[in-house]
Design a protein around this nucleic acid. Structure first.
Lengths: 157, 157
DNA sequence: GCACTATATGATATAAAGTATCAACTGTCT
DNA sequence: AGACAGTTGATACTTTATATCATATAGTGC
């Protein structure tokens, strides 16, 4: 079995560099398979479920891929902060702002499926206050708002 | 088949009345099976997964219950606002404040599993601002913060 | 009370999402 | 090249949730 290079979705150089940097910083390796998963998510206009991602990778690479394999890639990408998992839809999407120390909120349009990633300091602060008022020490916040995006607001019958 | 009354967990009268009121207001029926599911969740000190709930109901009623049945009861209870689903743990818990028009946030302790339901107006407001700044019309917000509760903060090695 | 209708429940099967275990490969360091 | 750590693959399985179709039950008009 010669090593056929893994076919991957097109990924802008800029994003590839960010991914490499993050991996290196975390002391992890950005392998072709991991990169392929990342590129596939990046190429999608919408968040993908793990199994949608598997299907797309299988189509592109023309071979079977075990769920566990992709879940490991997703774990890796989550771990180094390149992607995010939407809890309310059990799907995955690339981080728009893969900077350090971000705490994001997500606006999910129930009409068109688009997702807007927001970093609101005031939301962050309000949450911090609410938590500490209860003696609670926050580690991670899941903030996902469903509703209608700008395009879809008013466009619904 | 005589109708054996469904065995249910003890539910304080006050909560039962609230449940009946909410069901009536929604024009829905609070059947024994639905009430049993509600009582079982209420009796639990922690959120339950759907299948944990099924197991408990089966034990209490000493019979098999199909998943779909319980999911329907959960849907009902969610619909009329008596319970809430935690997205980050895929589990269900009774609403502490089953008042109208509540928008709650949840503090989940990763150490002891306890959950604190919070209604912070400032979080709500900050979220509303962030959304409208993007032309986004919110319908529902999922806000779940994991961390350490008051009891567990500092108690961890 | 008795049929009528809408809703709720039950039985069975299946889909979707995620994990466990163990073996084989790959890349890096020496 | 040899050894080690980390990564991937193959197979099976668990957990979470839904589809379909038949049966039962509760409220409504007579």
């Amino acid at each position: 079995m010669g090593k056929a290079p893994i076919a991957a979705a097109r990924l802008p150089q800029e994003w590839r560099r960010i991914a490499e940097k993050r991996a290196t910083q975390a002391g992890e390796r950005l392998t072709p398979a991991r990169l392929a998963a990342y590129a596939e998510l990046k190429a999608s206009s919408k968040p993908l479920s793990a199994y949608e991602l598997i299907a797309r990778l299988e189509r592109r690479q023309d071979r079977k891929i075990a769920p566990l394999t992709v879940y490991r890639h997703l774990d890796f990408l989550l771990r180094i902060g390149l992607i995010h998992r939407l809890q309310s839809t059990q799907s995955y999407l690339v981080c728009d702002h893969p900077d350090e120390g971000h705490q994001s909120q997500y606006l999910l349009c129930s009409e068109c499926g688009s997702v807007d990633e927001v970093e609101s300091a005031s939301v962050d602060k309000a949450l911090g206050n609410a938590a500490s008022a209860r003696g609670f020490t926050p580690q991670h916040a899941t903030v996902e708002v469903t509703g209608l995006c700008g395009n879809c607001t008013g466009a619904v019958s």
